[in-house]
């Protein structure tokens, strides 16, 4: 190997590395700006139902989904917009779903808490806490049996640690060496209660009890999440069985948009601390600049482009039509 080729290889690697982290940044910004529009739609009473925002937690969805292939599976939660976007869903059809429009991912029948998209391996967001742990594990069983090399990622909040079925499926996943990764997004609160009041012992100890490979990641650090996720996904694909990842993070807003007075369960200072010191987008943006992968203008450009994309997507959704009445009784059976 001559020095010249290794130099071009090195610069190609560098370019790929740069592109990878710029893409991660773009994905996080898109999620943040998506949620800003949701907040706006909701407060202007244009969005029916409930809206659970993912803002603050972007590095988890992005760090993990960037380690997945398009045909790998995910299951998501009531706080699912970030997972859907990170896995490749497009914002226009997501907004359409949030507004109950025919053009939405579920023809308006699912809404914010139930976005599903086979094209991106999204088995569905779920409004039952812990409701998808079996589904993700079942997808891993099918992947193993069909030998298609896919893995399944099961996203859930630390609140789902309360559900017994999680432990039933973790046991099975380990016994059967299934390619599933349980991602526990610990944003500290189950609705309005600090997780320490609902969770005995340690989070990782739960996985350890089944001998499942378990790790913790700083969920505000997209590179850290991504590095661990890449390793766990590779392991799962190679047949080494399930893994458990605890990602420590924080939700910036209320449990849902209407949860405004929340000082009885957490302080404004705490929220402010996470927003100003631990923001995943700011932290990663700073790192990009330090690495000379980006400058302020480039980052602003990314944000401006994402903002434009989200505005156009909202416009699409607002202008889209509602499903026809006959739709109400379609899709009950396959």
């Amino acid at each position: 190997m001559t020095t010249a080729t290794s130099k071009t290889e090195a610069s190609r690697d560098l370019a790929a590395e740069k592109e990878k982290w710029l893409r991660a940044h773009r994905q996080m910004v898109r999620i943040r700006l998506f949620e800003e529009q949701v907040n706006e739609l909701y407060t202007r009473a244009l969005m029916p139902g409930l809206a659970h925002l993912y803002s603050g937690e972007e590095a988890v969805a992005v760090g993990i989904c960037e380690a997945l292939n398009l045909d790998d599976y995910i299951t998501s939660t009531h706080r699912g917009h970030g997972h859907c976007l990170a896995k490749g869903a497009s914002p226009d059809r997501m907004f359409a779903e949030l507004l109950g429009k025919e053009a939405g991912y579920c023809r308006g029948k699912g809404g914010s808490m139930h976005i599903a998209d086979p094209a991106t391996g999204n088995l569905g967001a779920n409004a039952i806490v812990g409701g998808s742990v079996g589904i993700a594990t079942g997808a891993a069983l099918a992947a193993k049996r069909l030998e298609n090399g896919r893995v399944a990622v099961c996203f859930f909040g630390e609140g789902a640690l309360g559900q017994g079925s999680l432990y039933e499926v973790m046991n099975l996943a380990q016994l059967w060496k299934l390619p599933v990764i349980y991602v526990c997004e610990n944003n500290l609160y189950n609705e309005y209660t600090h997780y320490s009041e609902t969770t005995a012992g340690t989070i990782l100890g739960r996985a350890a009890a089944f001998g499942i490979e378990a790790e913790t990641a700083d969920g505000q650090d997209v590179r850290a999440v991504h590095e661990i996720a890449t390793r766990l996904v590779k392991r799962a694909r190679a047949g080494a069985g399930p893994a458990f990842l605890q990602a420590d993070t924080y939700r910036y807003s209320g449990h849902h948009v209407g949860d405004i007075n929340r000082e009885y369960y957490r302080s404004k200072q705490e929220e402010q601390h996470w927003k100003s010191e631990r923001d995943p987008i700011q932290l990663h943006g700073k790192w990009l600049v330090n690495q000379h992968y980006a400058d302020a203008a480039l980052l602003e450009g990314i944000a401006a482009e994402a903002r434009k994309e989200m505005e156009a997507a909202v416009k699409f959704a607002v202008e889209a039509g509602y499903p026809a009445e006959a739709q109400v009784s379609e899709d009950v059976y396959a």
């Binding site: 509602y322 499903p323 009445e325």
Partner: peptide, 15 residues
């Protein structure tokens, strides 16, 4: 109506 309750308001109102 004998369907899962749909999200979309005009559909939900029919149920």
């Amino acid at each position: 109506m004998h369907v899962p309750i749909p999200f979309s308001p005009p559909l939900e109102d029919l149920t």
